[in-house]
Simulated scan of single mutants.
Amino acid sequence: MKSKTVDQSKVSVGHLMQPDQANIEGNVHGGEVMKLMDSCAGIVARRHSRRNTVTAMVDELEFMYPIHVGELVTCYGQLTYVGKQSMEVLVTVTVEDLQLSQPPKVALTAYFTMVALDINGNPTAVPELELRTDEERRLYEEGEKRYLRHKENRQKRKEKEKAEK
């Protein structure tokens, strides 16, 4: 399986926020934004793996600015780490009020762990990630640390569950 670069799977997806995505005050529901982010991460993972993918985990989701009806939300997705079957995708969300002449602001970011599936729905191998820049290497190293931390936490939970039985 040939490796792929980060740029080969990067995406940006824009959405104009609508009234049905918000509460009566015009604030867009966090779940609506999370859904857009999940879709963006899924596109990145599918472009890289050329397989169906599912979300295994969302890490470090932090809302920094509210999002309102009528604003343009753009989700930028890129791979940061690739394991054997899983891929970590950083999704950055910007918000822009199209009535003002201000640059977009980063509203939130999150790391999505996506798993590639074969035709039977089982996890399957994905191409390695070819790193070309210092920034890509830095993000990869940080992603690998998160991956190992989550793996250790899963193992601890399994051991605790086994001990409780």
Rank of each mutant, 00 (worst) to 15 (best):
S3I: 07
S3Y: 13
T5Q: 12
V6D: 00
V6R: 00
V6E: 01
D7I: 07
Q8R: 12
S9H: 09
K10Q: 13
K10A: 06
K10P: 14
V13P: 10
L16K: 11
M17E: 05
M17F: 10
P19E: 03
D20T: 05
N23C: 05
E25F: 15
E25A: 14
G26T: 09
V28Y: 09
V28R: 06
G30M: 08
G31R: 13
G31S: 09
G31T: 10
E32G: 01
K35E: 11
K35C: 04
K35T: 11
S39L: 05
G42E: 09
G42V: 06
V44D: 07
A45E: 06
H48M: 08
S49R: 00
S49V: 01
N52D: 02
T53H: 02
T53N: 10
T55M: 06
T55R: 05
A56N: 05
A56Q: 07
M57I: 11
V58Q: 00
E60W: 15
E62V: 12
E62C: 07
E62P: 02
F63S: 03
F63I: 04
Y65P: 05
I67S: 00
H68E: 07
H68W: 13
H68C: 03
V69E: 01
V69H: 05
V69S: 01
L72A: 03
V73Y: 04
T74E: 12
T74V: 15
C75Y: 09
C75K: 05
T80L: 01
T80Y: 09
G83D: 05
M87W: 07
E88T: 03
V89Q: 02
V89K: 04
L90Y: 00
T92R: 05
V95H: 02
V95G: 02
E96M: 02
D97F: 04
Q99C: 06
Q99F: 08
S101T: 11
S101D: 12
Q102C: 05
Q102K: 14
Q102T: 07
P103H: 03
K105G: 08
K105M: 13
V106F: 09
A107Y: 01
T109V: 03
F112T: 00
T113F: 00
T113I: 01
M114Q: 04
M114A: 00
M114R: 01
A116Q: 08
L117N: 03
D118K: 06
D118A: 03
I119G: 06
I119C: 10
I119M: 09
G121L: 13
N122I: 07
P123K: 08
A125M: 12
A125Y: 13
V126R: 02
P127Q: 08
P127W: 10
E128W: 14
L129D: 01
L129F: 02
E130K: 11
D134K: 15
R137A: 10
R138W: 15
R138K: 14
L139T: 04
L139E: 06
L139C: 04
G143C: 06
K145M: 08
Y147P: 05
L148S: 08
K151G: 10
E152V: 09
N153R: 13
R154Q: 15
Q155E: 15
Q155P: 11
R157N: 10
K158D: 11
E159H: 13
A163M: 07
E164G: 04
